[in-house]
Amino acid sequence: MIGLFGLVAALGLAVQDGQRAVTFQQTDGEWTVVGDAGLGVCLMRFPEHYNGSALTVFAHGSRNAYDFALSNPAWSSLETGDVELQAILLDSAGDIRDIWTLDAAGTAEEDGGPRINWRILRAANDGAQFDQQLREATTIWFGHEGVPFAQFDLSGSNNAFGMLDACRSHLRTDPSFDPFAG
């Protein structure tokens, strides 16, 4: 999984620098989804940042999963290994809809982080439910050992995840798609 995050990071940086032509790009408000059939991935970055944190979601063209990367340059003490991560989803009234405990892996700064990675398998019952809650909730908080440390606005996420799914479909039909990449 770490190698795939490196590909996505490279795609994101290349797109920002104008170095790589993407085969898919859609924008809706503050949300943008880009994809590259040659790399076999689509990338969606959350528009709202809290305390320097960034949340990125990507979909690999040949997998039925979303991969997530949560990062912040201030997390210099994050070590490589398992991380206890909670996702707290809130509705428009600020009430908790659900709390998830995610199987996550930390990546230390010297290993390419600081970053926390996790995967949601969309075909699994829990994955499908998490996916739907991300589309319906208005805010997500992330916490570690009961302490919240990152927050993101989910307004417009339903359309953004729709764009991510459209990107994945586009990748699969693009003549340059390599289903074995990554």
Rank of each mutant, 00 (worst) to 15 (best):
M1R: 12
M1L: 14
I2D: 14
L4M: 15
F5G: 12
A9K: 15
A10S: 09
A10D: 06
A10L: 07
A10W: 07
V15P: 04
Q16K: 10
D17W: 11
G18P: 03
Q19N: 11
R20C: 05
T27M: 10
D28K: 10
G29A: 02
V33N: 01
G38Y: 12
G38P: 08
G38D: 12
L39C: 08
L39I: 03
L39K: 07
L39V: 04
G40K: 00
G40N: 07
C42L: 00
L43R: 15
M44Y: 10
R45T: 15
R45G: 14
E48M: 09
Y50N: 10
S53V: 05
A54M: 12
T56L: 11
F58R: 09
A59T: 10
H60Q: 15
G61P: 09
S62F: 12
R63P: 12
N64C: 10
N64H: 15
A65D: 14
D67R: 12
D67S: 13
D67I: 13
D67H: 15
A69G: 11
A69P: 07
S71W: 05
S71R: 11
P73M: 00
P73Y: 00
A74N: 13
S76C: 00
S76F: 05
S77G: 07
E79K: 14
T80W: 03
G81D: 07
D82Y: 12
D82L: 13
V83W: 01
V83S: 03
E84I: 07
L85S: 01
Q86I: 04
L89H: 02
L89I: 00
L89D: 01
L89R: 00
S92H: 13
A93P: 02
A93N: 09
G94D: 02
I96T: 14
I96L: 11
R97F: 00
R97I: 02
D98E: 05
D98G: 02
D98S: 05
I99G: 04
I99D: 05
I99P: 06
I99A: 06
T101K: 13
L102K: 04
D103Y: 07
D103C: 04
A104K: 01
G106Q: 04
G106V: 05
T107P: 09
T107L: 15
T107S: 13
A108N: 01
E109N: 07
E109P: 08
G112Q: 00
G112W: 01
G112M: 01
P114S: 05
I116N: 04
I120C: 06
A123K: 11
A123R: 13
D126T: 14
A128N: 15
Q129G: 11
F130E: 02
Q132S: 10
L134A: 06
R135M: 04
R135I: 03
R135T: 08
E136R: 13
A137Y: 01
I140Q: 02
W141T: 06
F142K: 04
F142V: 01
H144T: 12
H144M: 11
E145H: 15
V147S: 14
V147P: 10
V147D: 11
V147H: 13
P148W: 04
F149N: 06
F149E: 05
Q151W: 07
F152T: 01
L154Q: 00
G156Y: 02
S157F: 11
S157E: 08
N158A: 14
A160K: 03
F161S: 04
F161C: 02
G162R: 12
L164E: 03
L164D: 02
D165P: 06
A166Y: 13
C167H: 03
R168C: 09
D174E: 08
P175V: 10
F180V: 10
A181P: 09
G182W: 08
